[in-house]
Structure formats: C-alpha cells, structure tokens
Design a binder for these strands. Structure first.
Lengths: 147, 147
DNA sequence: TATTGTTATACTCTATAACTATA
DNA sequence: TATAGTTATAGAGTATAACAATA
C-alpha cells in the first residue's frame, strides 16, 4: 500500500506478497471461524480439539502448543470440559500434574467440523487446476518448513 | 489428517492444500498479532486503523468491513477513541449517522506497525527467490480474486 | 415505520499476580 | 525451593436484545 519498496532494500515484490499472505490468512481464518461457529466453537476451542486429536498433554504443554498462559488454558479447558469435549485425567506418577484428553463427543465434533471444512476449502481452491494447486502447496510448504 | 480423500470426490491434493493454507494463515496471524501487540493493539484494532486509512465509514459500514455486529463496533470505536486513535464525526446530512475517521496519532501508529511488519515478512518470505515469490503471489491472487 | 447508532447484559478469551499442592 | 495447576481479578472482544433519536 505504501511505497516502502522505494526506500528500503527490498528484494522486490515484497509488499504484494505480504498483502496476498495477509488477505489469504484472513480469508482462511474467517472460513475456519465460520465453520467452528456453526458448531458453537471458537477458533481456540477448535485448535484445542485438533491438538488433542493425537496427544494427551499437560496444561503447560498445552499452553505451549496454543501460545497461551497456563491460566488462560485453565479456563479454556474448564469450558471445554463443561461441554463434555475434553477431560482432565490425574497423572499417577506426579500428583501435581494432569493430562487433558479428548472425549468421544469432542472427537465426533472435531470430525464433523473437519468434514464441514472440505466444501469451503474446495470452493476456495477451485480456481486452481491440480498442477497449480500442487505448485502452491510446494511454495507454501517451503515458507512454512524453513521458518 | 483423515482419509476423507479416499471417500469423497476430491480433485486431489485437497487436504495438503488445506493444511498448508491453514498453517500459513496461523503463521501470518501470529506475526500480525505480535507486531500489533508490541504497540498495544489487538488485531481488530489494527484492522480498524487499516480500514480507516482511506475511508471515513459510518458504524454500519464499518461493521460490514469488520464482519461484526454494530454494537461490537460501538465498543471497538469507543476504546480506539479513548486512546485517541480515531474520532467520531457527526454527519450534517443525517442526524442519526456518524462517520469514523482516523486521527493523526492513529495514522502514525498504523504507519509504524506497517514499518515493523516489513522485517518479519521479509524473513518469512526469504526462502523463496524472486521468481517463485512472484509465482506464489500469482497463485494466491487467483484464489483471492475469484472468490 | 425504518434506519443509525448506543446501551444493558452476558459470555468467551486473555493476561498478571497470588495461591495451593506436590516434588 | 521449584514446578504444575488453579483462582482472583481485570479488561478486550463479541453477540443479542432493548432503546433513543432521526428519517
């Protein structure tokens, strides 16, 4: 939007790239948010279910995954537990610790949301034929994996 | 993550594409959020400043841009106004309406944030040489523009 | 009556600081 | 003392419903 590229030592195409990334990021977040909301879940709750799909972390570990304070996670897990989506399990080896696991209900809702996401993503990706789609994935993966 | 691709009429590569888009979206949001937070702004407040950079919308219009209820926007603008970032202006032609405009201070902070975003985005994009970067932009633009 | 915006209320999300219980 | 987790508290963000003022 600005003409920063004129003044700084940019490699070129940096701002259009930034704009495109910002826009796609908001588009995807909106999409995720809408589907989650249709199941009465916030994006954070959805992330929680996603993390618990194949893990049973403690609260601190969970805070790490979610990039939240442990006290925030307490509340998050409280609300999810009240809704029967997750469960706190005492840890035999350490009386202070607990592990958080997903319930059958939580897993079912997660699966339903994942299913519901297929359509919107298919629509979003429709403009790209398979070859270009693969190209996009390769480019994004390179950004993500070399972070 | 699931094997949905086995059961539904997918074009192929749909889930890796979805995963990549979700991941990049969270990465970008985190980046934006961190820079905004370093100026004590939420992502929504940052969006607000961005919208007001070249517009003076009414509350309903603003709610449309932000995809929020008008009452939510009232609070949002309240807080931004208290911090001196935006201003409510009465509209001569319609006694019910107001226009929201950005203050010099708001514009300055927005500019500072935009400046601060250059580095992190440059780092994120570093793995891609110019040609591939252009390719990525072209692919993303096609997704975004044909929504 | 319809429209623009605000207010009242309630809940989620988040953080900081203080606390409890266990190691 | 250090660590895992919770609680107390506060504020932002959001929605719904009711309201006030103007059109």
């Amino acid at each position: 939007m600005t003409d920063a590229r004129e003044h700084e030592g940019s490699t070129g195409g940096e701002d259009v790239a930034r704009d495109a990334l910002v826009e796609i990021s908001f588009a995807v977040q909106q999409l995720l948010g809408q589907v989650a909301e249709s199941h009465d879940l916030s994006l954070t709750q959805l992330r929680l279910l996603g993390i618990l799909r194949d893990r049973e972390p403690g609260m601190l570990e969970l805070a790490g995954y979610l990039n939240l304070e442990k006290s925030s996670v307490s509340g998050l897990v409280d609300r999810a537990e009240q809704r029967g989506l997750v469960r706190r399990k005492p840890v035999a080896a350490d009386g202070r610790a607990i592990h958080v696991s997903i319930t059958r209900k939580g897993r079912a809702i997660g699966a339903k949301i994942e299913h519901d996401l297929a359509q919107p993503f298919a629509r979003l990706l429709r403009p790209l034929p398979p070859r270009q789609r693969a190209q996009l994935v390769a480019l994004l993966r390179r950004l993500l994996d070399e972070r």
